[in-house]
Design a protein around this nucleic acid. Structure first.
Lengths: 184, 184
DNA sequence: CGCAACTAATTAGAATATCTAACTAAAAGA
DNA sequence: TCTTTTAGTTAGATATTCTAATTAGTTGCG
């Protein structure tokens, strides 16, 4: 879970917002010679942006009592439904976390009645995970907000800017996805 | 702390990577009427990208035994040094977390000798936080990696694409920053 | 002045999200 | 059958956050 923002501060010994410039100055003194300054600057913005994007989404999902990562798991269950059997191991692999972490996640979701575990007939070590009707109802309730929050990230962009943004995002996503060895 | 990626999975009951299409199909069924589909699609990519960006950075910083958020705090100390007095309250406000959380962060950093707390003379309730020589040394050691990781996020982009990306990132950062009420 | 009200920081206790290592039970191999 | 491997869970840990209560110091005001 990430930050929250509330007011709890006397307008007093507050640190002024520095903006990006002091960071760039520091970069000039501390980056390796072969580091492309312009790219590093963009990366810094990207990092800040990423932080804020996740905060915004978690903030908008909070009223539903579910985090983005748990919703992610539920969506996985919805999208793979019928196609293939979903096991904790499979989920761990797809989410990039350990089996033990999935166990904890599933415990949490099961406690709320949003998923069920069914022991596999074929291989009795395995568990099949399924979303319940209640889980499906939750997803249905949450998704409109999810999508509108997604869209809201680009609210100030013109039509042309959106076209550009789309291409770029696809490319960046590809670059970083590769760098992670991941795949969604 | 976010995910990690390791192999610990039999090539067996793995969930296939679905890609973005099933998500878009689901969006068509579940987004509100007035949600702009193209933007929502981009937002989804942005969300995935954000997750990956933070993972990449935390992965690259891990060898130094410090997380991005703790490095962030140390950088704040470096950049405000000499200009203004830095208190836990001020830090909490700037980092968008509670004073109690800052206390925990400072305990951790102090235990490693990277910061010190100095009781204020003027107002004995207050604490001034300062980075130590060891803390400065750590920052100096980490920053080259930090910047090169930042830059690496754009490794596959052409020169023109970078120019476009820069404009766009500045704009998006502005949008989301505003949406958060934040300021760095 | 002296006390009520406020403020700064910490402590205590909790939740989430992750990890590693050890364990249990089942399946597979030889 | 007996060993090894696999799936899932448990146990115990760390990190990052929170709220509420506490301690100690400052300020305002009658």
């Amino acid at each position: 879970m990430r930050k929250k923002r509330t007011k709890e501060q006397a307008m007093d010994q507050q640190l002024p917002a520095l903006g990006v410039e002091p960071y760039l100055e520091l970069m000039n003194q501390t980056a390796a010679e072969d580091t492309e300054r312009k790219s590093a600057h963009m990366g810094l913005l990207m990092l800040w942006l990423s932080d804020n994007v996740l905060d915004v989404m978690d903030g908008d999902l909070a009223p539903y009592g579910i985090s983005e990562s748990k919703l992610d798991l539920l969506l996985l269950l919805v999208l793979h439904e019928g196609r293939e059997l979903i096991t904790p191991s499979g989920l761990a692999d797809r989410l990039g976390i350990r089996r033990a972490s999935v166990t904890a996640l599933l415990d949490w979701l099961e406690k709320r009645g949003w998923i069920i575990r069914i022991q596999s007939e074929a291989d009795r070590r395995m568990i099949h995970v399924r979303i319940t009707e209640e889980g499906r109802a939750l997803v249905k309730q949450v998704l409109p907000t999810f999508w509108s929050t997604c869209a809201s990230l680009f609210d100030g962009l013109s039509q042309e800017e959106r076209v550009i943004a789309e291409k770029l995002l696809i490319k960046l996503h590809g670059i970083v996805e590769k760098r992670m060895g991941g795949g969604r």
